[in-house]
Nucleic acid binder design. Structure first.
Lengths: 144, 144
DNA sequence: GCAAACTGATTTGCACACAAACAAGTTTGC
DNA sequence: GCAAACTTGTTTGTGTGCAAATCAGTTTGC
């Protein structure tokens, strides 16, 4: 059984582990994004995109729609508010809720950079052919 | 030209963007990991795995070998040191360097959880067949 | 042989990211 | 009708992750 023999441990190749690969690909993607769109981060842009798609949302729902927990979305909304890209207002229907909406500045920024955001996605996937990109995306979506 | 018409902006589907998908897949992977291996984080385990593979390394080189910048690896090494899984010592050859090595406790933890770490990777990829996993990994590696 | 360039480590500041605990408000079940 | 259960938002604590500045030490070029 040789439980104490180090040589009997399974081979663990860090470079082949999905988590490590995901982290490195994400690092490259974030670098491409911040180079192309220095005004906001990827998460901040996700919030702008969702608000533009869905209209004003409560802060918690906005978090769920952008895959951020309550503590994270609060920080993101705070920073976007400070930069003037979103506004917040209490919901008269439900006094627990804080409604978050895109401001005119947020609309303008979105219009200005949405094309670049698409280019960032394309740039991240640049090493792959069109069909490889489709394959990769489809496979990743099954892991969500 | 209709520059001011919002309807003329390109379609940006957040759910189809590679960065957003990567973030969500990573979230799921981190959740699986922390459930299976609560003792350390993914990045901390990456450090243990590299030290076991390569032996003692300077802190900066260890960072490069685990895809962390100097500020990040310092924090990770500090936390691993506090938990007793690594030890640090000045390098007599180069007085700028801080050599990081796996401790006996680190070796023991690694031996105890490496099998679980492999199971975490398998679990993350569980929705895919063996050949799909190989395809996904190969495609992702081309994006690093 | 020594100044310039480089490398290693640290610190600060900012931005996610999640867990846990809490307060306030709303809904539900009986 | 009202207590229990749930939801929303906030705060605190911990852990990445990167940029930029700084200091100490090493290497290089002339």
């Amino acid at each position: 059984m040789e439980k104490t023999d180090p040589a009997s441990l399974p081979d663990y190749l860090l470079d082949d582990q999905i988590g490590y690969i995901l982290r490195r690909v994400t690092q490259r993607h974030l670098a491409i994004f911040s180079e192309a769109i220095p005004q906001v981060t990827t998460t901040q842009f996700a919030v702008l995109a969702r608000l533009r798609q869905l209209g004003p949302l409560s802060q918690n729902l906005l978090g769920r729609e952008t895959a951020m927990d309550a503590a994270t979305i609060k920080g993101v909304v705070d920073r976007l508010t400070r930069q003037g890209y979103v506004t917040t207002a209490p919901d008269p229907e439900d006094r627990r809720r804080l409604t978050v909406a895109l401001s005119a500045e947020g609309e303008a920024l979105y219009a200005q950079v949405v094309g670049k955001a698409l280019a960032v996605s394309a740039s991240t996937l640049d090493p792959l052919s069109a069909s490889e990109r489709a394959t990769l995306t489809a496979l990743l979506l099954r892991l969500v």
